[in-house]
Design a protein around this nucleic acid. Structure first.
Lengths: 365, 365
DNA sequence: CTGAAAGCGCTTACAG
DNA sequence: CTGAAAGCGCTTACAG
């Protein structure tokens, strides 16, 4: 019967040679492949006796299903592809953790790729994920405009949800923070405390170093935060001073240089809003170098509540984005789309202001 | 000829219905599947004319190879599975980045899973990766002893390399830092600066909260660092004081509590070695709470050069592990094993001491 | 409740 | 240089 290899040392070979296949398990349990599959997969009808025999055979042979074959036949991989801008950024790693945990409860695995905020790498990552036949995609898009590859995913429509940022004609579902409101609230906090000279340190991958004017192709989180801040300034009749606003590449050294530029204007701003962890760090470093005391000589509020933000002296006042909820929501929306839901769901979650000690009253010299 | 579907609206269907397959491309280009595959894959012999015709057909149909099928047939997935303790930890994310970049140059993709330093989740992650038929594995093992699943990977021996930590009888290749020497050097730096009352804040997942005695099942990086530190103390004839040494779960609040315990002994240590980012942060938080000035009232040196370490005031003196080189080396070793190399290669890279401003002379009251 | 057969989409020998 | 055929390891209808 055993056509596969034939001779007497089958047992030994099974252990040392090749991974056991379903047919090996089936033979050992004296059933057909179909029955073995049903027993192992826990679907269809099988007698308890058969199920046990098959289970025992599988254990004996150290059988492990070949997911490649299973997926090919079933047409599903139970895998979600994720493309983030920067796997090294704590905001994204926290989001990834939320995605992994949420997806796991539904039996889905996660395949994470990095785009480095580079549209070419994003295209490449998308291609790879599609070739691996992921069942759905969660993408932090590198650009709000260059989106053809996201829109034309080829396949009979692999479901996709954008995370954190969205695209310009909002043709794809997204899950994000209300960045406009968050920035607006941050500015209002500064104003409430008496600040009238307010600057901004804005992180973006769209610029090589740092610059005073907004580069092209800036991502929605960036434009929304800037717009929200400017709207607040207008509402409050606070003048907008170009020299106090800088767009900086997301990089500590560059952020520091940009912050120094801002702080060397005269008069300098009495308070600054930083749009992410690197900008906050760069600002702190600049203050160290210029011997300015934060919360006293100059105030700081920044996006994202990193672990060190509360440990710093002074503890940093921050805009805390609901990162876990964001990742969770992205998966939930995606799973509903995978299940066939056609309605577009775009979710904007509110951020919360955590006021610690880096925002004091303005120091008037 | 066209058995698949038959009728006249084939073109339309190809665009809206199903993803194009190799056979669709082949038909459109008027060649066999074998030829189409060769043209697309860039292997075997094909005329330029044929190659171009096939390429045009592929583009026209928006063809994307099915990696599942390709892998099943070829027996390779060009994917490396990675299991890390904590995807949220900056040391591991930097290592992952190095792994991704190094692997990419050889055409390999990375599939990252998280174990949370939990042996059960590690087993589960391993199973998933093996079922997905990864070509190799890079694992940060959660335990030096519970290693049966790592040793018996089933498959005809899927290559594996351990990263950062290794297992007790060192039966599996590993790439790690020389933690013993690094800790020893850190202690010597403290001693050189005059410290004789030296404590240690040790991160470990093997304890629920914090404790004064070393828990069972501690990972090699932990035991090596502790051993290195103790060896240095012995060499220098510095007394070892149990109350100044704490094992803490890797968690900011717990680390802070543990640090407070250490700092409330009397006399308290004049310097402390922290074994990772969380411990350093916890120690800083504790000093803030107890109103102790770092580098003055008490000195600190810690493992891992995080972005904020140099921005803090005082800037933290740290043991900088060669994280990028570690990830790179892990991939290099793994690829050589995938290529069939049977020699065991265990690599220990040296760390470097970066002395900034958190280590001052001991303050004698 | 169980089995025989077909087929998922490729690539790999083998012929020509 | 190109093609016909087999087969990777499963699961899915379809019979019985």
């Amino acid at each position: 019967m055993s056509i596969r290899t034939g001779t007497s040392m089958d047992k030994e070979r099974d252990q040392t040679d090749k991974a056991a296949r379903l047919i090996d398990v089936a033979r050992l349990a004296n059933v057909s492949r179909a029955t073995a599959a049903r027993a192992l997969g826990g679907y269809g009808l099988v007698t308890d006796a058969t199920r046990e025999r098959v289970a025992a055979a599988a254990t004996a042979l150290n059988y492990r299903v070949n997911e490649l074959a299973r997926s090919m036949r079933s047409g599903r991989t139970l895998t979600i592809g994720v493309i983030v801008a920067d796997i090294t950024n704590s905001f994204f790693t926290s989001a990834i953790r939320a995605i992994i945990e949420t997806a796991a409860t539904a039996g889905y695995q996660i395949l994470v790729l990095n785009s480095d905020d580079d549209i070419r790498r994003e295209r490449e990552a998308l291609r790879v994920l599609l070739e691996k036949r992921v069942d759905g995609l969660i993408v932090v898009p590198a650009s709000p405009r260059e989106t053809d590859h996201l829109l034309a995913r080829g396949e009979p429509d692999v479901p996709i949800v954008l995370l954190d940022r969205y695209i310009d004609p909002p043709e794809i579902d997204f899950v994000t923070t209300d960045d406009f409101e968050a920035a607006r609230a941050a500015i209002r906090l500064l104003a409430d405390r008496g600040h009238r000279r307010i600057g901004m340190l804005v992180a973006t991958a769209a610029v090589a170093s740092h610059s005073t004017k907004q580069p092209k192709g800036v991502v929605t989180t960036v434009s929304n935060r800037v717009d929200g801040a400017i709207a607040a300034l207008k509402e409050l009749d606070i003048p907008y001073n170009r020299d106090w606003h800088r767009y900086s590449r997301t990089n500590l050294a560059i952020a520091k240089a940009a912050a120094i530029k801002i702080l060397q204007t005269s008069p300098r701003p009495t308070a600054v809003l930083a749009t992410n962890e690197e900008m906050a760090l760069g600002f702190v470093a600049a203050c160290g170098e210029l011997d300015l005391s934060i919360g006293d000589d100059v105030s700081l509020i920044s996006f994202d509540d990193t672990p060190w933000a509360s440990v710093f002296r002074p503890a940093l006042s921050v805009v805390q984005r609901p990162v876990y909820a964001l990742g969770e929501a992205a998966v939930t929306v995606l799973l509903s789309k995978i299940a066939g839901d056609k309605t577009v769901q775009s979710i904007k979650l509110p951020a919360v202001l955590i006021d610690r000690n880096s925002v004091g009253p303005p120091k008037t010299r």
